[in-house]
Amino acid sequence: MTDFSQARSIAASGMAAQAERLRFVSENLSNADTPGYRRKVTSFEEVLEAGMRTGKVQTGPVELDQKALERVYDPSHPMAGADGYYDGSNVNMVVEIADAREAQRSYEANLRVFDQARQMSRNLFELLRR
């Protein structure tokens, strides 16, 4: 039984981590047109308890993408410099959408594992019912 509850909590940690990643993706997407915005990126890391691996996963510290900001030409923009350019954001829509897709796919896989662990423990309990 402990295996199943462990499997469930690991899968739940995976879902939480993917959901958090999706949150950053949506922050990036909604700020795609904010001047000077740098996209937020996070990575995943294994959760350690007292130096021992638990198998769970969590998102790592949030970092700002240091890629150069896009230079947008618009002399009428309030933030435009003498040359008519201003710094846009460095969000690339295609990258964000791909990231969101991957997050969704991984989330679903975790959900499947969660569901299967639940069904297996239920089947085990069925033995007692007879």
């Binding site: 295996d3 199943f4 462990q6 499997a7 469930r8 690991i10 899968a11 940690s13 995976g14 981590a17 995943f44 294994e46 198998g55 769970k56 996963v57 991984s106 896989a109 975790n110 499947r112 594992v113 969660f114 299967q116 662990a117 297996m120």
Partner: peptide, 11 residues
């Protein structure tokens, strides 16, 4: 199943 859950969570 529990080992598999670790793999999927860390995909």
């Amino acid at each position: 199943q529990s080992v598999l859950a670790e793999n999927v969570a860390n995909a």
